[in-house]
Design a protein around this nucleic acid. Sequence first.
DNA 1: ACCATCCTGACTGTTGAACAATCCGGCTCA
DNA 2: TGAGCCGGATTGTTCAACAGTCAGGATGGT
Lengths: 222, 222
Amino acid sequence: MKPDRAERSADAIRELIVTGRLTPGQRLSEQSVSESLDVSRNTLREAFRILVHEGLLVRRPNAGVAVAKPALADIVDIYRVRRLIEVPVLAAGDPAHPGARMMRDAVDAALAARLGGDWRDIAAANMRFHSGIVALAGSPRLDRVHANLSAELRLSFGLLGDNGAFFDGFVDRNAGLLRRFLAGDADGAAADLNRYLADSERTLQTMVDDAGAADAADTVGQ
Amino acid sequence: MKPDRAERSADAIRELIVTGRLTPGQRLSEQSVSESLDVSRNTLREAFRILVHEGLLVRRPNAGVAVAKPALADIVDIYRVRRLIEVPVLAAGDPAHPGARMMRDAVDAALAARLGGDWRDIAAANMRFHSGIVALAGSPRLDRVHANLSAELRLSFGLLGDNGAFFDGFVDRNAGLLRRFLAGDADGAAADLNRYLADSERTLQTMVDDAGAADAADTVGQ
DNA sequence: ACCATCCTGACTGTTGAACAATCCGGCTCA
DNA sequence: TGAGCCGGATTGTTCAACAGTCAGGATGGT
């Protein structure tokens, strides 16, 4: 119930990253961050290790850590892995599994959030939807891997402006996919999901491409 | 080319774990380990963070870290994920990809090692074979995840005595699978792999079961 | 002899301070 | 303008300290 300080610091920083309050490429000074989180430098370094290991921070020798700046290749990679995981899991999933309930709740939340109008809520619900899919497998390791990918993906969203129209189109598709899955057509749902992931990858790619072309030649992320 | 000290320490400890020189459940004192690796306690703590995050060490509050002791459920989980990853990757793999060469080299090494008689070499070659399969996907993230799973698996092997007969039967199957794949029958090879993983999971399970029954009631690993 | 209690020692979790090595930005000087 | 130099700031790493906590032995009563 009570994680140690380093882990809590890592959680706090991770939250800042995935919510976009820390922008990709931004450098994190040990001193200032440790002061603002009220932990010692040594403890903070342990937190940094975790996040570097998760790929949310990158370490530059003798220049500390900075928020990772996913390149196009990274986004492609993330989607490839997600597809590899989610599609077969959904195809083999059981509608009675608790994960299905997560999916349903997420769809409801997404629909409500669309009325509310805050695209962040929609994005969060969307993430939970996909976590629900992975949960169908009942594999702790798979859950961890997927949670990690989600975090990296949310970080990639930070490369776009607050462009929320992105998710709007997917809410209905999620709902349709879920209906199909709950009706017993897991294979059909999996096929939907496959198309869904391909489409959203393509969309995100072009968006990042454009945004990348905008702020031109700051290819620090290597 | 020159990782920092914490990472090198983590590498060193990881090596000790996967080669079985550190037994599951064994507790690692910060003081003694830091002395033997010649790093400070703080630096060693960063190394511990990495390994805990990888699941090779477990942290017990106020009692430091200990080598993880995978339960039966963990082995099942590892194999489930491996299957989920490796089978479709192999099915979609291209025999011209560099990963195929890794597979071939690994098979050759395994055949040679069988003559040599050291089962550790066979095990290592087997691991490389499967790494080669995953490499076919060309996904850095998938490679990382799989490397992690391999490490955990090797740790599980530590629960058995130096029982090397385990791998003997698989060498030929690897060779046959590879032949099939190189001949262009990726789907057939993937089906072989699926059976392979199911069999080896079953074998390993019973072995761990027996070994676990042997040293009876030391269920510290929880 | 048995049991609960207390105590002590060891270890972890966390911090602050220190210092060499390294890097970045600005300055000097040609 | 540009090459080279310098100083300040930051990282990488270590050490020493201390409170909190745990395990196990010593203690003492019954």
